[in-house]
Simulated scan of single mutants.
Amino acid sequence: MPNDEILTVKETATLLKTTRQQVRKMIANEELPAVKVGREWRVLRAGIMEFF
């Protein structure tokens, strides 16, 4: 899968094997880089790799 793939909060939670609520907390705490598109957050797969 390409690193420039854009993931939803749900897809990110599945990838990290955690809850959507935990992903939102990580975004709010700026632990996970994300962009708000309308009312929804989007996370770049590359940002998840940076997190690790």
Score class of each variant (00 low, 15 high):
2 P>N: 12
2 P>Q: 10
3 N>W: 05
3 N>G: 05
3 N>D: 13
3 N>C: 09
4 D>Y: 15
4 D>M: 14
4 D>N: 15
4 D>G: 08
5 E>Y: 01
7 L>H: 01
8 T>K: 06
9 V>P: 00
9 V>Y: 00
10 K>S: 14
11 E>S: 13
12 T>R: 03
13 A>L: 06
13 A>D: 02
14 T>C: 02
14 T>N: 08
15 L>C: 07
15 L>A: 04
16 L>S: 03
16 L>K: 00
16 L>R: 03
17 K>N: 12
17 K>P: 00
17 K>C: 09
21 Q>K: 15
21 Q>N: 14
22 Q>C: 04
24 R>K: 15
24 R>Y: 04
26 M>E: 04
26 M>R: 13
26 M>P: 01
27 I>N: 07
27 I>T: 05
27 I>Y: 02
28 A>E: 03
29 N>D: 03
30 E>K: 14
30 E>P: 00
31 E>W: 03
31 E>L: 11
31 E>M: 10
32 L>S: 03
32 L>H: 08
32 L>E: 12
33 P>G: 01
34 A>M: 02
34 A>P: 00
35 V>C: 11
36 K>D: 05
37 V>S: 05
38 G>Y: 06
38 G>S: 08
38 G>Q: 12
38 G>V: 12
38 G>M: 05
38 G>W: 11
38 G>I: 10
41 W>E: 10
42 R>P: 08
42 R>G: 12
42 R>N: 13
42 R>I: 14
43 V>P: 01
44 L>S: 09
44 L>D: 02
44 L>K: 11
44 L>V: 07
47 G>N: 15
48 I>E: 00
48 I>K: 02
50 E>F: 01
50 E>C: 05
51 F>P: 02
51 F>W: 15
51 F>R: 09
52 F>D: 01
52 F>K: 03
52 F>Q: 07
